[in-house]
């Protein structure tokens, strides 16, 4: 475990804490895409299939349970909590996310390291995670004013995979970890999708003004 990896996981965890904080304290999920949250549940379910068959460390198992539990909890809040579900921006969260699932399945069936169920589903989870943020980014562009916690949530979510890329570079250079096309390309695409969000987020932070994405 290197520093980049730990920072990446902590940033990812922090993004989820910020989102839960927003939903629980403000009792609102305005500006949050339920579709992106649902895609994350699928990502974790298909990536952590080895949760009960392979043991790496307490940390690894604990984090998998936390990510699974919180992502399912967030979807539950947004779908079924009597107060929160009223605040869901249903009319604006219009991205056709089933299309992303289909694309990822097809790509995982075409490009994978081994053709077995676990490996193909793991590969699917990497492809799906790379594009899972799209419904959320589209929703942000439609939102007139993005509240601070939502902006922070998306920023942290983008930052975590950027830190993972540094972790892969470190492992490749220092631990002579083998070159991994699939996670690395997926991670690069994932981080690249945040590029313009990062630009506007940092600009709004520097100019101390409200975050606004161009429509």
């Amino acid at each position: 475990m290197n520093l980049f990896r730990l920072l990446g996981d902590m940033t990812h965890l922090l993004s989820i804490v910020v989102l839960l904080l927003k939903i629980r304290t403000v009792k609102s999920c305005a500006g949050i895409s339920l579709k992106t949250q649902e895609l994350y549940v699928i990502v974790f379910l298909t990536r952590y299939l080895d949760l009960f068959t392979k043991y790496y460390s307490v940390y690894n198992t604990a984090m998998k349970l936390v990510f699974l539990g919180t992502s399912i909890g967030i979807v539950w809040y947004m779908r079924y909590h009597k107060v929160v579900k009223q605040t869901y921006s249903k009319d604006e969260d219009t991205f056709k996310h089933y299309f992303l699932i289909l694309l990822s399945i097809i790509l995982a069936l075409l490009i994978h390291r081994a053709f077995d169920v676990i490996e193909v589903l793991w590969t699917f989870s990497l492809y799906l995670e790379a594009v899972a943020i799209l419904p959320q980014l589209v929703l942000l562009q439609k939102s007139r004013n993005i509240d601070t916690l939502t902006g922070d949530y998306v920023f942290l979510l983008g930052a975590y995979r950027a830190l993972y890329i540094l972790n892969w570079v470190y492992r490749f250079l220092m631990e002579n970890h083998k070159f991994r096309w699939i996670p690395w390309i997926s991670g690069l695409v994932q981080t690249a999708l945040y590029a313009d969000f990062f630009y506007y987020y940092i600009k709004s932070w520097k100019n101390r003004e409200k975050l606004k994405l161009p429509a």
Binding site: R5, D9, H12, R47, D50, K54, Y56, S57, N60, M63, K64, F67, W122, Y164, N167, E175, H177, P183
Partner: peptide
Amino acid sequence: AKVKKEKDEL
């Protein structure tokens, strides 16, 4: 060992 290293990430 290889498998262990391979999928030890989240």
